[in-house]
Amino acid sequence: MDTAHSHRRLTQLLSRGALTRFIIVRLAATGLLLLVLSFVVFALLHLTPGDPARNLVGVRNVTPELLQSIRDKYHLNDPFMNQYLHWLGNVLHGDFGESIRNNTTVTTLLADRVMLTLQLSSLSFALTVIVAVPLGIAAAWRTGSALDRSMSAASIVGVGAPTYAVGLLLLYVFGLWFNIFPVYGSGDGGFDRWWHLVLPAITLASGLAAMVFKLTRTAVVAELNQDYVAFAQSRGLTRRQIRSLVLRNAMIPVATSLGLVFAFLFGGTILVEVTFALQGIGSLLAGSVTFKDLPVVQAITLLTATVIALTALAVDILYYAVDPRVRKRGMQ
């Protein structure tokens, strides 16, 4: 009894150590990816046509003094690597410089807007998962049924349908025609804010839900065709038991792809925020790009990359937790 107990403790400790090692390795890889990306993002300043200093002046009057002060401030006369290291040092302290368009720091500008994008993203992500995953499971369970056929057809349209077109149609039907939802703007905080976000969130979720539906359905169908399902049936397991067997297996690829969906989410928020005139990070990016407000563009790009990289990391760890096969490989 004693030896069995200590044996189990040992394996627990071992696997905990393996998890730590796994996380450290993945963190290092994420850090490296972000470092390379930060370099590319910084290089945007020099890749943009025109003199970087002039680009940073924006629409202000160009005077030699102003250009000189900009050059000094951004170390534009230093060698390229030094400029980058200066910039990176500032970025790590949360300083992305000043917006060209608005005379504030990029950080304050982002702070004002980040909440709305977060609310919009989480609302549509929640909507997607709540609607698409159960529907995908149900459709896979009855392949060929009316539910499956109609949902599969809808998902093909949904995957292909552009977010802004769907958004405008919804806006027209529910906002202008039936006059149920507010048409434009971000609302005045609290419940009003959420009420304003309903249509945009549905818009964003429609494309994502189509994708998640497809992924879930494919994953569950693949599992249902496995031998272990036939074997479970043949030895008399109940429908409920078989379902839990299948879902536990199918949820592994589904959970992984939800991470991927998250990456798509931000691409979509740009269009939805512009469509519904919401004051979030996405519409800020669209505006800043057309205005060539580089510090803002750099900040948003890097921020997005960080969020996506961290999500990918979280998914990997989740993967590790739910799939014993990955655990084993991680240990070796």
Binding site: D227, F231, R235, G236, L245, V322, P324, R325
Partner: peptide
């Protein structure tokens, strides 16, 4: 009838068990 009267053993032991459930659990599920 399945399980109590009639039961089936399949060819491929690599696919006939669920990969993410422990063996004990799978044996006693029925």
């Amino acid at each position: 009838l399945r399980g109590q009267y009639i039961s089936l053993l399949l060819q491929n032991p690599f696919t006939s068990l669920s990969p993410v459930h422990r063996c004990g659990e799978q044996i006693t599920a029925a």
